[in-house]
Amino acid sequence: MKRRLLILAATVALTLAPMARAQDSGTMAQVKESGELRIGVASAEPWFYKDPMSEQWTGVGVAMGRRMADKLGVTMIPVETSWANAVAGLQANQFDIMFVLDPTEERKKALAFPENPLFYYAMGVLVREDSAAKTWVELDTPETRIGVTLGTSLDRNVTEMMTKA
């Protein structure tokens, strides 16, 4: 089955995720004392990708973590999590920071996010090549099945937008 990427008019803001325990400034002291910056990583290209052969993490979030760790003079340690467990992982001090974690209203109740987005990205959908859909509305039918990564902001956005699919 051939597919094509259909970029539709929806934009989502990404922000730099808060550091765990940021309220008491304990995380930065912990990072400097341990010599490690533990970043939360959840499989989702292009943000985080774990090569199955080398088991090395790459991606936008990993690159940001490496740069931050280099600037701090510490070692970056990737800590696997899921988008659904990211907030709990930060709260439980399983990792110090997670990049590319969208500040949903629910997440803002649990963590303090920076005010300004790190960057914006377009939200797209992969559809069959013979699909006539050009908008989200045209995809929102009972016949349409949609798959998203559980616990992500895309999960929330698509669930809110697509009431029939």
Rank of each mutant, 00 (worst) to 15 (best):
T81F: 06
V127I: 15
T11H: 06
Q56W: 08
Y120I: 05
F95C: 02
F48M: 09
N157P: 03
Y49N: 14
L5G: 12
L101F: 14
V60R: 00
D70Q: 08
E45R: 13
L6F: 06
A110T: 12
V12S: 09
Y121C: 09
P46W: 11
V87K: 08
W136T: 04
D24N: 12
G124P: 10
L72E: 03
V12G: 04
F99L: 08
A92I: 11
L150P: 01
L37Q: 00
T11D: 10
D102Q: 11
G26K: 07
G89P: 09
L8Q: 07
T75C: 08
S153A: 14
A165W: 07
S131K: 07
V125E: 03
V41H: 00
E33K: 15
V74G: 01
F48P: 00
F113E: 04
G89S: 09
G65N: 01
M76W: 00
S25M: 13
A88K: 11
A133P: 07
P78I: 10
D102R: 12
L154H: 07
S54V: 13
L5K: 11
Q30P: 02
V87D: 02
L16A: 12
G151Q: 08
M64N: 01
A42Q: 00
P46K: 03
M161G: 01
T58W: 03
G89R: 02
S82P: 01
Q56Y: 13
L37S: 01
P78F: 08
L118K: 02
G35S: 10
E106C: 06
L16E: 14
M28L: 15
M162A: 02
L150E: 07
S43N: 14
S82R: 08
A13N: 09
L5Y: 09
E55N: 10
D155I: 02
R4N: 12
K32I: 14
R38S: 06
V158D: 00
D155N: 06
R4A: 06
R145M: 15
T135H: 10
Q30S: 14
M161H: 09
A86W: 01
S54C: 03
R38P: 02
E55Q: 15
D51V: 11
T15G: 10
L14R: 08
Q94C: 04
P78K: 09
T159L: 07
T81M: 06
D96C: 04
A84R: 08
R145Y: 15
Q94Y: 08
N116C: 07
L8F: 06
A86G: 01
A122I: 09
R3I: 15
E80C: 05
E55A: 10
